[in-house]
Every structure is written in C-alpha cells, then in structure tokens.
Simulated scan of single mutants.
Amino acid sequence: MGAVRFGVDDIVNVRFAISPLWETLASYRAVLDPGLHVIHLPWLRSALTLLRDADLAERTAPLKSLVRTPPPRCPLAEIEEELALLAPAPGLADAVRAWWAAGVQPYWPRIRAVLEADIAYRARQLAEDGIREVFAGLNPALTWSGDTLLSPHLPEPAACLDGAGITLVPTAFAVGCRFLTGDGPGQPALLYPTRAVGTLWERREPADDSLARLLGRSRARLLALTSSPATTTQLAARTGLSPGAVSQHLAVLRAAGLVTSHRYRREVNYVASDLAVALLERGGGPVREGQADREPTGTA
C-alpha cells in the first residue's frame, strides 16, 4: 500500500491544474491498449485510424518509451509551456506535438471543458465539505489514516510533501490515480479520473417534441447539444444558427438554470445543468458522437 503524508502547510497548499501534456500522452497510451478505455470508443475509432498512417505512427513512436512525465506547474498551461518541462530527448517533443495535433487538439475544447467542470465541482465541494471530502471523492482507492493518504496507486515507501503541497489534476484518460514528481523543487501532482467522463463523446437528442414545445425548437436543440461542454462557436456550427442567435438562446437557458458556463482564457464553455440533464433524460437518450445529426436551420 502506497502513501503520501500531509502536514498543515501541505493542506493549505492544495491546488488544481489541467495538463494538456498528460492528456496527450495518456490518450496515446489509450490507443495502444483500447480494451482498458472502452468509454472512449467513439474517439478511439478515429484515433486508431490515425495511427494506421505510417508517417504519423513513425513520428509518434517515441511516446511508447516515455514512462515519466513532469507534474504541471501552471493551472491552465498550454501544451508548449508543458513541453518545456520535459527532459531533453531527441524527437520527444516532436512526437508529442504530432499526436497532440492529430489526436487531441481537435477535441481539446471538449476535453478541457469536462476537466474544468470537474475542478469547479471540487472547488464547490471544498467550500462546503472541506478538503478531506474532496480527497475522499477523487477515487474509491484513496483512503485516509490520520495525516496520511493511502492507495495502491501512491508511492512506496510513503512520500512526504514537506510543506510543498500537492496539485490535483483531473484527467479524462485515466483508469486510476497516479502520483507524479518532478526534478527539483515544486509541487508533486496527483492525477485522478475526472467526473462525467461518460458524457465526453455523447450528445442527447429529444425523443419527442415536448421540450421543443416548452423551450422552442432551437433552444431545445441547443440544450441537447450541451450534454457535453461546447462553446458558442461550436454550437453555431452544429446547429446552423448564427453565433448571435446561439448567444441569445444560451443567455435564456442560463437564466433559467438549464446551462452553466465556465471560462477558460477567451473561451466560454456551456454545459447542461443537473436540472437540464433530468429533463433530457425524460425526453430522450444519449446519441454517440458520429451518429447522424438532424440539424435545424431556423431559430425558435
């Protein structure tokens, strides 16, 4: 059983971060062992096709030997910022860039929005229930004993944080927790499976027109598409509505408590609230990414 010991200073130095570098590497490993990642099957279909390209397979091959990654140093780092933390290795950064561009970047706004929603949930839980409950909810394999966090996923012998604290990193491509340490000073990181990863590759289509009668056809359609996080631009592209019309509809849905928004730099992602999910559950089921769309072209 592995362990991490916490002191008072460590508790007050807990923070959250998102790591595009880790998601890139973990998603590549998921393609190499798809049986462990069936929840990502809609994405895996296209990702496996990508690696059938001989050139991309050759360019990304160095990733197979990368076994150690540094913990994130910035809460909302860009991929190039994190690549600078990698130990020098011929071709490694190029291999990461190649897989990032092909397999991750096209989906990054969606992935990042799910991770940000997880952090928002944990932050709210921290305010309401305290740090112990936050850790207890990260993964069933994590347990507390006094001042020590225990798990088979943690290092042996036990790690001591020595007042540096720890960075908690949600990840979409994880089957368990993982403890990361870097060279020199800096916080180690604990990666844990994000909440709501099952919504990452699905959308919802209303099975009948009850929501359309209640909200209007366009708003009902937009609400269905926010079962996974999306930006105004993405929603406009999917529905055929203008960005201005989408913004107006989202403002109404947000005022009604049916969508929530999370900002990342210059982007705002919208996702259905718990109330909206309940309404969608009554009106229809999930539609996996890649199934045929029936996009309306008018407005409500």
Rank of each mutant, 00 (worst) to 15 (best):
V12Q: 09
D293Q: 11
P140T: 06
S145H: 10
P34N: 08
V114N: 12
L51P: 12
D94R: 14
D274V: 04
Q187G: 00
V252C: 02
P62A: 12
Q291Y: 10
G165C: 06
G184P: 04
W144Q: 06
Q248K: 10
A123S: 13
L21K: 12
A123P: 00
K64G: 10
G257M: 02
Q187H: 03
E281P: 00
A276T: 01
E205H: 11
A256S: 08
V12A: 06
I119F: 08
S242F: 00
G137I: 03
T194R: 08
P90D: 14
L190F: 03
A196G: 03
H40G: 03
L21D: 12
S273N: 02
L66H: 11
V67N: 09
A87F: 08
G165K: 06
R288S: 15
P109W: 03
T299F: 08
Y192F: 15
A98W: 13
E128M: 04
A89G: 13
A17M: 07
A77L: 10
A84I: 07
V134F: 08
C160V: 10
A117K: 07
Y192M: 01
I39W: 13
W22Q: 14
H153F: 08
K64E: 15
G184V: 01
T24E: 11
A89K: 13
S27D: 02
P155D: 10
A123F: 00
S247V: 03
R124Y: 01
L190G: 04
T231G: 13
T260P: 00
R29H: 12
W144S: 04
V14M: 09
F179S: 02
H262R: 13
A207P: 01
A292G: 05
R213H: 09
D183R: 13
F6D: 05
E80A: 13
L280M: 13
S145P: 00
T167R: 06
W144R: 06
G198C: 03
G2D: 07
T69E: 12
A95E: 12
